[in-house]
């Protein structure tokens, strides 16, 4: 198991390095002069050359990249051009805010989707199964940026006006206000994920239910309950975990959109802001953090998967 953890971490680190290279190459060397883009066409030559110096644009590409990565390793993400602040100081709070959204979304989706998927598979073709399938179909087809505004219309506007339509309150400030601000964004994020997870859990369970060892367990005369819990769920869950880890990539993209819908001050909204203002160091930092989260989550899921299912070794 330790060897598995080490080898997975090493490949993960390599992937991260390559991802950072992709991000750097596609954002650093833009067509046109980055200094002119930032300061406008009327900037003096003096100001331009000063900025080029400051951004390190005169140095060779490899040096620029190495200095960027080297800084990040030491926790230095550079300085935001539009905000004039060290990016490290902005990133922390935003990342924690987004992480709360992500974790709540995954928890809610798993808690709702796994039992529904299992029930659906056990009663294949039943009314429950058909209802769950049709609703999940709607879930995967309604885009997040459509579902979010519709939730606002339904629950944040009169006549109901139950929940705030936007914003964020830190958990430590006021737990109730925190929860009230989380409900709508998490619901919007959960919809697609739950729908997909239900479908995957269902088909994973159906496969397990048809497998030879489940038939053997039944023929041995084990009580149905034990067959389901001990034999099916464990394997079904391993599949669900893999699907969940892969879906996380979709959730990370969705978070960018949903944070914008609900004006939620997370890393996704920061990314959109940075792109709108062409704040290159900020874009590089936020996209790298999002991609890194996805890579790390996949490593964790992989390790958890082999713990749940040691036979794969």
């Amino acid at each position: 198991m330790l060897a598995k953890i080490i080898s997975r971490s090493v490949t993960g680190l390599f992937t991260l390095l390559m991802v950072s290279l992709v991000i750097f190459v596609s954002t650093q060397f833009l067509p046109g002069d980055a200094a002119v883009t930032l300061l406008g066409d009327n900037a003096t030559e003096e100001a331009l050359s000063h900025l080029r110096e400051e951004l390190g644009l005169n140095e060779p590409a490899v040096t620029q990249y190495l200095r960027w990565v080297g800084g990040i390793v030491q926790g230095d993400f550079g300085v935001s051009q539009t905000l004039g602040l060290p990016i490290g100081t902005i990133l922390g709070d935003r990342f924690i805010a987004s992480l709360q959204l992500t974790i709540l979304t995954i928890l809610v989706a798993a808690i709702v989707a796994i039992p529904l998927g299992v029930l659906s598979a056990i009663g294949q073709g039943s009314t429950i199964d058909r209802t769950v399938l049709s609703i999940s179909y709607l879930g995967i087809s309604i885009p997040d940026f459509v579902f979010g505004p519709l939730l606002i219309v339904a629950f944040a506007l009169p006549p109901l006006a139950l929940l705030p339509s936007s914003g964020y309150v830190p958990l430590s400030d006021d737990p109730l206000a925190w929860l009230r601000h989380m409900i709508l964004p998490v619901t919007a994020l959960t919809a697609v994920l739950t729908a997909h997870l239900v479908r995957q859990t269902r088909s994973g369970m159906l496969e397990v239910l048809k497998s030879d060892y489940v038939r053997t367990a039944r023929l041995k005369g084990l009580p149905e309950r034990q067959v389901l819990w001990r034999h099916c769920l464990r394997n079904g869950l391993a599949t669900t975990l893999t699907v969940l880890a892969l879906d996380l990539g979709f959730v990370m993209g969705s978070i960018v959109v949903i944070e914008e819908v609900f004006a939620y001050p997370g890393i996704g909204r920061l990314t959109v802001f940075a792109i709108g203002d062409r704040d290159i160091p900020l874009i590089q930092a936020t996209t790298l953090v999002i991609a890194a989260t996805f890579v790390v989550a996949n490593i964790l899921a992989d390790i958890a998967h082999s713990m749940l299912n040691p036979k794969l070794e």
Binding site: V19, M252, V256, T287, A291, F294, V295
Partner: peptide
């Protein structure tokens, strides 16, 4: 291996990065 690296960037975020350039 190259494909794996690209796949480890969420596609919407990848699209955002390309839009920057």
């Amino acid at each position: 291996r190259v494909v794996d690296v690209f796949l480890s960037i969420p596609s919407l975020v990848f699209a955002l990065i390309i839009i920057v350039s």
